[in-house]
Computed example of a mutant assay.
Amino acid sequence: MPRLLDIMESADDFIFDTLSQIRMDTWSRGRVVLLGDAACCAAPSSGMGTSQAMAGAYVLAGELAAAAGDHGPAFAAFEKEMRDYAAENQLIGRRAAEAFFAPGGEGAGDPEFTAPAEPPVETIELKGHQL
């Protein structure tokens, strides 16, 4: 850490960022709907970003078709269908981040640390289709 602090001011390619997760109260407003990471990013530490985006796109398309393109009911049904799935993945992301990045957290600073395995993600059923 002391070496990093010494060289970061003079480095021309130093990047420092946060690992964050935002939980939204709603994923749509008017004719605009958030999907994938914009709606429910589980965090890079979850490994579920692409899966959530693909599942969300699939469910949203199905809800828009079922509502004959009427975005209001389709957006509400999409969010109702996806909310629990997103919350489970966000929890996985928070647990992984705590294990690896939290100050004093399990494994902090230990390159040999392996995070405890999460229970396997089960196949989920959304609108009668398994994903």
Rank of each mutant, 00 (worst) to 15 (best):
R31P: 05
R83Q: 08
M48T: 08
A77P: 07
R83F: 06
A108F: 12
P119F: 03
G93S: 05
H129W: 13
G47D: 06
F101C: 11
E122A: 15
A74R: 01
L19W: 08
F16S: 12
G47S: 02
P120N: 04
Q130M: 09
D70H: 04
L126T: 11
D84F: 11
A108P: 00
I92F: 03
T18Y: 07
A61S: 12
G30S: 08
A86S: 13
L126A: 09
A86E: 00
I124K: 11
E125L: 08
V32M: 14
M24A: 04
D6S: 13
R31E: 10
R83A: 05
L4Q: 08
F78T: 01
L131I: 13
Q130S: 12
A108M: 03
F100V: 07
I22S: 05
A53T: 07
E63N: 08
E122D: 12
M48W: 05
P73Q: 13
E125Y: 05
E88H: 10
D37A: 08
M8T: 08
A65Y: 06
A99F: 04
L60Q: 05
L4N: 07
A108R: 06
M82L: 07
M82C: 02
G128M: 02
Y58V: 01
T123S: 10
G109H: 06
Q21E: 09
A96K: 12
G69L: 14
P73C: 09
F113Q: 12
E9V: 08
P119Q: 14
P111W: 01
A74D: 01
F101N: 10
A55H: 07
H129C: 09
A115P: 04
L5P: 01
R3F: 03
P119D: 10
A38S: 14
R94H: 06
E88I: 12
F113V: 07
F78W: 08
A11R: 15
D25Y: 10
D12T: 11
M8S: 12
E125K: 06
D25P: 13
M24K: 07
P103G: 01
A11S: 14
E112T: 14
E106T: 04
L34A: 04
S45W: 07
T18N: 02
F78K: 01
E106N: 04
